[in-house]
Design a protein around this nucleic acid. Structure first.
Length: 155
DNA sequence: GCCAACGTTGGC
DNA sequence: GCCAACGTTGGC
């Protein structure tokens, strides 16, 4: 089982949206080849992911979800009315993938990016690296454990 | 709203 | 295949 961190803007789709869904929902709209390759080659049902709110006040980790599907073609790439439409993606060889995720837990607090940056053991975590813009990135088991400990801590 | 970082596109 | 221009992300 692998661990991930997945970013979304809470104004667009936050952890409350996923929780309210009450069942697996599609994680759609990833339009980056590195992320596509993660979904194609590495993500498996049962993997767990940190839900990260970006462009938020503050930005940070807000909870946990579970991956419930393998990567499959993101239907929005074929929908001309969708903002995720990609006219260059062949129907028979889809360029973009999505996965299904389900809500597991919402933390009692947001763990802000600034706190991740100052926490010993997380200095190599992908999300704290300068210029790191991937919306999906791997998390090591050690980093996962540390973040879960932070989540338990009250301020 | 600014702007640094960096992925993607397209001219050559 | 290089690389400049452009677009997007996302912290601040």
């Amino acid at each position: 089982m692998k661990y991930w961190l997945m970013k979304s803007e809470p104004d667009v789709y936050g952890i409350d949206h996923l929780k309210a869904k009450g069942k697996p929902d599609i994680w759609e709209g990833c339009r980056n080849y590195t992320v596509r390759n993660f979904m194609r080659d590495q993500m498996q049902p049962g993997d767990k992911a940190l839900f990260y709110h970006s462009n938020a006040k503050p930005s940070g980790v807000v909870g946990i979800m579970r991956i419930t599907s393998e990567g499959y073609p993101d239907p929005h790439q074929f929908d001309p009315k969708s903002k995720y439409y990609d006219a260059k993606s062949p129907q028979d060889n889809p360029r973009w993938l999505a996965v299904d995720v389900e809500h597991v837990e919402t933390f009692n607090r947001v763990i802000p990016l600034s706190e991740l940056k100052e926490t010993p053991g997380l200095q190599d975590m992908a999300v704290v690296q300068r210029g790191q813009r991937l919306s999906v990135m791997p998390v090591t088991e050690a980093e996962w454990e540390i973040v879960l400990e932070l989540a338990k801590k009250s301020l």
